[in-house]
């Protein structure tokens, strides 16, 4: 097999590629934050009576909350802020498809490239 000679990349091309990667990194990490996609899916289940008892805290728990500087009123939003684990099937299916498609592409495309590497490496010998 003929040895593959890659093209020389110009300085401008190198700078452009660096810019592409930087932009991609920022889009991937910053966009979910900007669109509000990042962060936990939690919400507060409010209670009318804001007492340690109503908040489900026994005497030991209440004394620790107070040591930490909380009152039943200020602890209410912490204690009543809950995850609601409802499985959203369409989103779960989309997530599974995206993950599987990604890994399938990754392994198949990698294998194609790997065969070129192996052919060139071992045909040289």
């Amino acid at each position: 097999m003929a040895r593959y000679t890659p093209p020389q990349q110009s300085k401008a091309g190198q700078i452009f590629d660096i810019a592409v990667v930087v932009v991609a990194i920022f889009v991937a990490l910053w966009l979910p934050l900007k669109l509000g996609l990042a962060g936990a899916a939690k919400s507060i289940d409010p209670l009318d009576a804001k007492t340690w008892d109503a908040l489900g805290q026994n005497a030991t728990m209440a004394s620790i909350w107070e040591k930490l500087g909380y009152t039943p009123e200020t602890a209410h939003d912490v204690i009543q802020n809950h995850f609601h684990y409802i499985i959203d099937w369409p989103t779960l299916i989309i997530m599974a498809i995206v993950l599987i498609a990604y890994f399938v592409f990754l392994f198949r495309a990698s294998d194609k490239e790997y065969r070129e590497v192996i052919n060139e490496k071992f045909d040289d010998k």
């Binding site: 991937a28 966009l31 979910p32 996609l37 990042a38 962060g39 936990a40 899916a41 939690k42 995850f83 684990y85 499985i87 959203d88 989103t91 779960l92 989309i94 997530m95 995206v98 993950l99 990604y102």
Partner: peptide, 13 residues
Amino acid sequence: FLGFGSQLIAMTV
């Protein structure tokens, strides 16, 4: 997925 599913999809994309 249970709580941070959108972030997972965005990162994988």
